[in-house]
Amino acid sequence: MKAKYLKKHGFGSIFYWLIAVLLVFLFLYPIYFVVVSSFKDNNEIWYTMFSLPEEVEWLNYQDAIFNVGILRSVLNSFLLSAGATLVIVIVGTMGAYPISRHIIRGAKQLKLYYLIGLMVPAYGMLIPMVKLFTQLGLRDKYWPMILLYAGINFPISMYLIIGYLDSVSREIDEAALIDGCTVPQTLFRVIFPLCGPGISTAGILTFLNVYNELVFANTLLQRKSMMTISVTLLGLKGERFTSWGVMFAAIVLSILPILIVYLLMQEKIEAGVTNGAVKG
């Protein structure tokens, strides 16, 4: 059997799959290390590579939850992501529809105007944004952050939703209009339900981006109860630890929810990221 396989596929093939498996190992190892270390006490973490904890140390998780408050940060990240996604889905679709159907003057120019945002890094405007938030007293509040994140993710979402709307036949709109629907009714009752795939791509990307965002959160959220996972984790890095395990437990707790979401809807998320990437 083995010999036959070798004859047919050659050593090249074995080498190929060896690298493929090695890469799997490379992608999983840091996660493995963090998970295993989160169950260890200080003496066991360093100077090992694969060893499992001798005794499972749940204290790390207790500390991460009650002292670090990581669950609060996870909740904040979720709230901001969900809020921004909701805003993007509603505002984005409303804005994309008239452009896709050319029912407003300057639809083309408006689309170009929106696409400028695709080509600039959002954090370039960090300083004016911090100034604005400070002057208007918007720091440490959910809604301003949600609108900020929706705005940052607006161009890519717009691009994706317009792209999808363009592929939905106009005859459907025409039929609805002839039947006496107004434009908003046509959009919300007829077109919106047909745009699931396009809108969910935009939504997934927005959700992932916001959940994992660091720069704006780190400068605009200072109250502990408002911090997102990235801010809390970064704050932990600067601290001197009596127990390293807490740090690892906090990392595990912050990536676990999104990993579960990913494993539950793999295909959708991968498709979303692909569509978002292939925008060129």
Binding site: F27, I31, L208, Y211, N212, L214, I229, S230, L233, L234, I251, S254, I255, I258, L259, V261, Y262, I269, V273
Partner: peptide
Amino acid sequence: PQVISRTA
């Protein structure tokens, strides 16, 4: 890695 935050 695509779903894990850059910070983590």
